[in-house]
Every structure is written in structure tokens, then in C-alpha cells.
Design a protein around this nucleic acid. Structure first.
Lengths: 217, 217
DNA sequence: ACCTGAACACCGTTCAAGT
DNA sequence: ACCTGAACACCGTTCAAGT
């Protein structure tokens, strides 16, 4: 009787299952993430996963929590709240944008994991420490997190990609079909396909943070 | 042989199938929307739907296009671009927020339907007519649509609802579990549960539109 | 303690058969 | 032209049986 050493060296674990799920979703898309395929990727039958994980929902929750853990929390940096928030918001956008499944998954689930709460708590703390009253902090939280989630969606949205030949072909086809009917869209598309998402995100964030600052004084 | 008059009076049609799908998703959630259940709701076997519709993806595309059709397009109103954009953005937020499935569905699909393109085209037109150059219009499109999508997500997100006893019980449970660990979140939760989403959305939108205006002059 | 095969109740979709 | 039953290739999950 032979022994599979790989399986022995890295035993099945909730953490390892979730990491494999992230890898599978990154490579083949979230719709390809099934318990059977995930088990196969780990060299095990699908039913074995249930010994380490509550079920598929538990895996999806773990994937989302992992995203927030990867973002981390803003560091206190001597009262410069704008740069602290900018760093964390940019990092959040980048982490979400790095996984095509992040925004659809977050928007279809409740956010009650510890990492999401930690990010929220420390961000609020930065604003409170800077002297903002709670109701202005509340407004700020809404508008900042809208910008992060909304921009991550736009960056992930595959409608106007620019990276592959397939993206260019798709854009050409859409413009041929709709270009005459919607001339302003046709004029915008080159900007959408060429734009720097970092600069674009920063443009909006600057407006928002300056606007919040102006509401204090 | 008897004849079902209801079926005769309202024959199966792509439009009617999509309307029934919206109704089913509104009432039972998007995960309850299956071809079999949708057929049942229409008094027909699931396989009959394929005579009028390309498949489930086609139905989902139709549902998304219906959302944008319901939003409509901004009307030219004598150059007051801020109020034109505000009206349409608010309407978009309200339409998305009225359907719990809207944001998850939009964020997981490409937006290439005619109604979405029309909304985009006319909104760009309002900004161009107001004298903004194309690259500033491009920035504006990104930040405004981020705000709309991001806020619709927050309004739809069921984590901090306030409408049902179930929402209150859930909030209480979360605060008991995390309240000590995350005191700033605990302080914010009452604001989240009481806030007026219309005012909150407007607060951010005002900051954004004023910021765009300031970039012109 | 962990893994597995068989089974259950679902999916979307195809296709030949009916009318 | 439209509807249907049977079938196919999938799902998530349970559970008794194995080691």
C-alpha cells in the first residue's frame, strides 16, 4: 500500500481549502468554483471538505474575509488622516481589482467577518482622532466606501478592458453596433480603454476627501 | 377538451418572461430564480421558455436592461447640468435599491444593453453641452458612476437594515459579538441604522459635483 | 478522526416527439 | 409554431459505511 506524501505533508484544513478556492476562482472564474472541482484540486473527494468547512457559504465567507485581511487597516500616522485614508482606500481598490470575483461576491453577501470589521473600526478611528464629529464621520464613511466599491467594480468590469486582443475586438464590435446611435459613448471609449485606473481613482478620492475636509471648518 | 383562457390571453413572450423573472427575484431572491420555477410561475414547463428566450443569461441581461430603461435618461434642461445629473443619479440609486438583486447582478455581468448605453450617452451629452472638455467628462463619469453603484450597494446591503425585527436582532447579535473589540463600529451602528439614504447619497453627490465644477474653472 | 460511495433534491439545456 | 417528457451533465449536501 503506497502513501501519498503530498497529502500527508499538507493536511486538509479550512485555511488551505479557502486558499485553493481563491486560486481556482482567480484562474477559472467564480462560476467554476464547485465543491467537486475544489476537492479535485486538493486531491480529495468533494465530501471530505465538509469535515473542515461548514459548506460552500462558509468557503465564500472565508474568501471575502481573506480579501479584507489582505487590505489591512490604516496606520495612525500623526494626524494626517487624508493620507492614511488614501493609502487604505487605494489598497482596498487594488485588492478588489486583483480578483474578478471580489466585487460580485462582496455585493451578494453580508459583510460580518472580523477583518471587514477591523478595517471599518480603524478607519473610523482615524477620522475621529482627527477631530471629526460622529455624524460627519458617518457621512464620510458612506461616501468613501461608495467610491472604493464603485470604482473597484468599474476597474473589474470586463466591458472595456484593454489588455487582450479579445478586449479590443469586443470594443470594436460594440462600437460598430452602437457607435452611430450613441456618439458620446463612441467618443468616450478610447479614454475608457486607455485610462490609468490609479490616477482616475485618485482624482475622485481627492475631490471627496477635500469635500469632507471643507465640511468640518 | 378545455382551454386555459389565461394562457391564451397573455401568450408567452420574451417581455412577459423577463417581467415574471423580475417579480420572482423581487419576492424570493435571485437565487430562487430558476428556469423550472420561472416556468411554473408562468404556467408552463421550463423547456417552453427556450422558444422565446436565448437561455437564462438572456433573461438576466433582459432584467438588467429593464433596470436601465426604468431609470431613463437625463433631460436637457437649459444648461443646469448639476441638477440634471443629480436627478438621474438619484433615480438610478433608487431603482437599484428597489431590487435587492440589481447590484449583484450588474456587477457580475457585462453592461452592453441599449438602455445602459443610452443612459451613458445622454449623461455624457449633458456634461459636454455644459462646456466640459472630454477628459474632464471622462473623470466625471468615473467618479459619478462609482458613487451611484457604490451607494446602491450600501443601501441594498442587508448587514445594517432597520426595517424588520430580524434586522434589529441581527444588529444586536453582531454588536454583542464584536462591540468590545471594535468600539468605533459600535458607535457608528446607530447612525447606520437610522440614516436617511436619500440625504446620505445627496451629501456625497454634492461634494462630487462641486468638486468637478471646481476643476473646470 | 478523517475519507468515501451512493443517494437525494435540485440546476441549465438539448432534442426528439407530440399537437 | 409552440409545448413537452425524457435525458444529460452538472450542482450542494447528507449519511451510512469504511479505515
Amino acid at each position: 500500500m503506497t502513501v501519498d506524501e503530498t497529502t500527508l505533508r499538507t493536511p486538509l484544513t479550512r485555511k488551505r481549502i479557502i486558499e485553493a478556492a481563491v486560486e481556482l476562482a482567480d484562474e477559472q472564474g467564480i462560476e467554476a468554483l464547485s465543491m467537486r472541482k475544489l476537492g479535485h484540486a486538493l486531491g480529495v473527494e468533494a465530501m471530505s471538505l465538509y469535515n473542515h468547512v461548514g459548506g460552500k457559504d462558509d468557503i465564500l465567507d472565508g474568501m471575502v474575509d481573506g480579501l479584507f485581511a489582505e487590505i489591512g487597516v490604516p496606520l495612525p500616522n500623526g494626524g494626517d488622516w487624508k493620507s492614511a485614508v488614501t493609502e487604505t482606500a487605494t489598497r482596498a481598490k487594488d485588492v478588489f481589482a486583483a480578483h474578478s470575483w471580489a466585487v460580485p461576491l462582496i455585493t451578494s453577501r453580508e459583510l460580518t467577518g472580523p477583518s471587514a470589521f477591523a478595517l471599518m473600526d480603524r478607519t473610523l478611528g482615524v477620522l475621529l482622532d482627527a477631530g471629526y464629529p460622529m455624524d460627519l464621520v458617518h457621512h464620510a464613511w458612506h461616501v468613501i466606501s461608495s467610491h472604493v466599491m464603485g470604482y473597484a467594480f468599474q476597474e473589474t468590469s470586463s466591458t472595456w478592458g484593454k489588455d487582450s486582443d479579445h478586449d479590443h475586438a469586443k470594443a470594436d464590435a460594440l462600437l460598430r453596433e452602437y457607435g452611430e446611435q450613441f456618439p458620446n459613448v463612441a467618443k468616450l471609449v478610447p479614454h475608457l480603454m486607455e485610462c490609468s485606473h490609479d490616477e482616475e481613482f485618485q482624482f475622485g478620492l481627492d475631490i471627496i476627501l477635500s469635500g469632507i475636509e471643507a465640511r468640518l471648518s
